[in-house]
């Protein structure tokens, strides 16, 4: 059975096969023999090629989080790999919005620039309106969460094409807030 996860380093595929009392895990072009010594709630106690590995795991929907032994927590999303099943693919980290990544052969400054929410939060202030020309570093939107304010600024001199939020809106990380284009 194949499982696919997306993390900070891209997409990774893992295959797990049960062989009687133990498991064979295919990952990164290698096979590992895994024995589950104990699985009690979120705590997993494994032997991986004879090496002990203790972990805590948690999930919600497609979100996955794991803490190994005494280490720090890591987060992943479980993804549907579709026809890619069985093929290990690495992809670049997600662009913040469609249209953000420059298409091959075209200079980036000509492309519309999407300014997206850098965190979950509430829009504390919208400083621009469509048609404004803003200088590099100008504050476009002030986003607020947990008593912290974050200013989203223009990356370069630009024309404000579209404002997709208003003061008081509650937004999720990654949502489009302002669309810029070359001025």
């Amino acid at each position: 059975m194949w499982f696919h996860y997306r993390g900070a380093g891209g997409n990774r595929a893992v295959r797990v096969e049960r062989r009687g009392e133990h498991y064979v895990v295919h990952l990164g072009g290698r096979l590992r023999e895994v024995i589950i010594r104990r699985a009690a709630g979120p705590a997993l106690d494994l032997l991986v090629d004879g090496r002990p590995l203790r972990a805590l795991v948690a999930a919600e929907g497609d979100r996955r989080a794991v803490k190994l032994g005494d280490g720090d927590a890591l987060s992943f999303d479980r993804v549907d790999a579709g026809s890619d099943e069985g093929v290990e693919v690495r992809i670049e980290p997600r662009a913040s919005a469609p249209g953000d990544a420059p298409a091959a052969g075209r200079p980036a400054p000509d492309l519309p620039e999407a300014v997206t929410a850098s965190m979950d939060g509430q829009i504390a202030a919208v400083m621009v309106k469509p048609g404004d020309v803003v200088e590099a570093g100008a504050t476009l939107v002030v986003l607020e969460a947990m008593k912290m304010e974050m200013r989203l600024v223009a990356p370069r001199r630009a024309l404000v094409r579209h404002v997709a939020c208003q003061t008081g809106d509650v937004v999720r990380r990654g949502r489009l807030l302002v669309q810029l284009e070359a001025a």
């Binding site: 059975m1 499982f3 996860y5 993390g7 990774r12 893992v14 295959r15 797990v16 049960r18 498991y23 895990v25 990952l27 590992r32 895994v34 589950i36 699985a39 997993l44 494994l46 991986v48 590995l53 972990a55 795991v57 999930a59 996955r64 794991v66 190994l68 890591l74 992943f76 479980r78």
Partner: peptide, 11 residues
């Protein structure tokens, strides 16, 4: 190791 652990848990 994290991916391996998650795959075992999902399995």
């Amino acid at each position: 190791d994290a991916l391996l652990t998650l795959a075992i848990a999902d399995h």
